[in-house]
């Protein structure tokens, strides 16, 4: 499988703040990659660097084989509309629809029209006065109608109503079937997009904590719940990413796959074992490292 986006050892510092810390990711061509993580984890910075709008302080990045920064032929293959995109003064929708084809060699006007109608973007209102959801819709039109081989969608759902989100999914899937492309999608509405994603990259504090196929990523942790002592025994030293305690009951998200011995022990001790959803996984990796259960018990006693 060809690698469409190859990121090696990329760091990005803004003054003393490290937004990305030694990030290495290889995104396969034509895959749909979810870029997940908490606010401030570095998702937007990473997308900006992939799109050549920003430059890494360290490390190398290749998009379709070239460093995107100031490389015209590569930049024409990428579309990235940021979630707080600025438009020229006095812009209205028709300005965007008129100029985008000049930059996007694969622009599809029918797709644009379909999205504008379906998402009900007002044509006459200045873009500055559009609601959050309407601005997201404009970004979706640019993102999908460009038919760019590398399409970066930054929080495409922000402010969208449920019908619009559904329409976005339908057209996204139809579009990548019609013209395969590599898609990176950042979002906080994880369950809504989970079934779409081939791969997930989870960032936390500027570092990559998960980079895997979606199903494998879900199996990289296990959910346990039951009596605190029993859960602790089943854990038998596995690192805990996130835990909740209620009285004598504890539920944890622990690192490592659920193997047969764990299942057997859990069964014996009456501890429930569940498969993590993508949302569980992202939440666990974003949580501050919890104190060991032993300590909590000590405090409780």
């Amino acid at each position: 499988m060809t690698t469409a986006i190859d990121i090696r050892g990329v760091s990005r510092r803004f003054g003393r703040v490290t937004a990305l810390d030694d990030v290495s990711i290889a995104m396969p061509e034509h895959s749909l990659v979810g870029l997940l993580g908490r606010n401030g984890a570095g998702k937007t910075t990473l997308m900006s660097i992939i799109a050549g709008q920003d430059r890494a302080s360290e490390g190398r990045i290749a998009v379709l084989g070239h460093t995107p920064f100031e490389h015209g032929p590569t930049l024409r293959q990428i579309i990235y509309v940021r979630d707080n995109q600025r438009y020229p003064d006095d812009y209205r929708l028709h300005h965007v629809l008129r100029i985008a084809p000049a930059f996007a060699p694969n622009w599809d006007a029918d797709v644009a029209d379909e999205l504008v109608d379906g998402l009900r973007i007002p044509a006459k209102t200045p873009l500055k006065k559009l609601s959050r959801g309407q601005l997201s819709s404009v970004a979706i039109v640019l993102g999908l109608a460009s038919r760019a081989p590398v399409t970066l969608l930054d929080e495409p759902y922000l402010g969208l109503d449920v019908t619009a989100r559904s329409l976005f999914h339908t057209i996204l899937l139809r579009e990548i079937a019609a013209q395969p492309r590599t898609i990176v999608l950042s979002t906080h509405l994880i369950e809504e997009s989970a079934s779409l994603l081939d791969r997930v990259v989870i960032l936390d504090h500027g570092k990559v904590v998960v980079d895997d196929e979606t199903e494998a990523a879900r199996d990289s942790v296990v959910l346990l719940s039951g009596n605190t002592d029993a859960v602790d025994r089943v854990l038998s030293g596995r690192p805990v990413l996130e835990s909740h305690t209620m009285g004598a009951m504890t539920s944890v998200t622990a690192a490592g796959a659920a193997d047969d011995s764990l299942r057997a022990l859990a069964d014996e001790l009456g501890v429930q074992v569940a498969r993590a959803t993508l949302q569980d996984l992202v939440s666990a990796h974003g949580a501050e490292t919890p104190e060991p259960l032993e300590l909590k018990k000590a405090i409780r006693v």
Binding site: H30, S31, L32, L173, I176, A177, P180, L196, D198
Partner: peptide, 13 residues
């Protein structure tokens, strides 16, 4: 592709 769109999953899946 039809399955992908109908059941909301990526065509690869």
């Amino acid at each position: 592709h039809d399955f992908a769109i109908f059941y909301r999953m990526s065509p690869i899946t």
